[in-house]
Design a protein around this nucleic acid. Structure first.
Lengths: 207, 207
DNA sequence: CCCTGTGAACCCCTTCACAGCT
DNA sequence: AGCTGTGAAGGGGTTCACAGGG
């Protein structure tokens, strides 16, 4: 598998395929044609076949795609077939909400250690997770074997924190802080900027 | 201005330009060249010039772009130069967090009426906003003159709610519910799927 | 010189259309 | 017949490279 020639947009669709397949599986559907899968996804059948063909030939001319098998395959591709533990930086409003967000658990993600700089929070337990001082990142984080982290903190000193996370083996980051963070070598960053989305909608609805 | 030939990705960058320009303005910078703006944005100078040239000729060969003027222009383009009131459906964990999210206020967005179907919540006040029954959407929503809405509810009956919102004049929707919603004619929907983002990161960090 | 604005080239992704198979 | 997988064409967005101008 050559990761370099997988379109980014295909990757983004993979999780939606998996969700659709999970629903089909629950309904007892054994196999599905690209046409039907496309309909459920809101894309073209050609798109479905192209996306899947990048990773191999999973389809059968007579029966289409095996639902259970394809669901499992995509799970393995995404790496969500086993539980992954995430670290989180920042325990404000947003951070505390994410701790109890069911969607993560359902998809095999679990927030483990959380870090903050506020001494009021350090040492306390939130939704079953102990809050550590950001100063103790280097001593605490390695125990949890996290490969991913969530940034839900303030913007000051963010680059330094990201650099430390990278040094500790964090490979990818979900960033809720609305400011540009330059990814260290080998680290992927996905930004979530809710205000930007609203501004986009505001622009589009003036058309 | 022909909206149809504005690349979607350019629209998404507009809010980032505005943020960068706001920072420059705060620092007392009067004008800026595409090269510097590109650096702050993390894009190429050609991209900056292309993006801005779509909306007009704002640059000056000798001095570059006027910071204050461009900041204002982009604000008007995005429609964030005046306060906009949003409606919100769903007052769970996420909904309550969004009510107190500072980022929205800072960018000129204000959540007005909130709706839920849980009779425990209806009539109560959360962060200064009264919670209405979703059954009263048609009688309550028109008073607020909302053009945008946020979906932070469960997935059941979502299409029906979206149709009702569209009938009441909602033009665009920020959707946190992880399921496909088919946009009614003339309505824009932006989906926020946090688990999908994590799955994407999970895939990428295996490369 | 070194800037902006922009036609043209380029690249990535999507869609078409069909060969190959059942 | 109707499906999958895939070369080839098409389209949207980015980058190149340069004309035009202070």
């Amino acid at each position: 598998m050559d990761f370099s020639k997988v379109p980014l947009q295909t990757v983004e669709r993979l999780s939606r395929y998996r969700r659709v397949l999970a629903d089909l599986q629950e309904d007892g559907v054994e196999s599905v044609f690209s046409h039907r899968l496309a309909e459920l996804m809101g894309v073209t059948p050609a798109q479905v076949r192209r996306d899947l063909s990048i990773f191999g030939s999973f389809g059968n001319v007579a029966r289409g795609y095996d639902v259970v098998e394809l669901h499992g395959t995509i799970g393995r591709l995404l790496g969500t077939d086993k539980l992954q533990t995430l670290a989180m930086i920042g325990l404000g409003n947003l951070g505390r909400t994410l701790l109890t967000y069911r969607g993560f658990q359902e998809r095999g993600f679990h927030i483990g250690p959380v870090f903050d700089r506020d001494s009021e929070k350090i040492g306390k337990v939130y939704a079953g997770r102990r809050c550590y001082s950001i100063d103790d990142l280097e001593t605490v984080l390695p125990d949890f074997k996290c490969k991913m982290a969530i940034l839900a903190c303030g913007s000051s000193g963010l680059d330094a924190i990201v650099a430390r996370l990278a040094d500790l083996g964090i490979r990818s980051i979900l960033n809720f802080v609305p400011c540009r963070v330059i990814p260290p070598q080998g680290v992927f960053i996905e930004n979530v900027d809710l205000s930007a989305k609203l501004e986009k909608l505001s622009f589009l609805s003036k058309a």
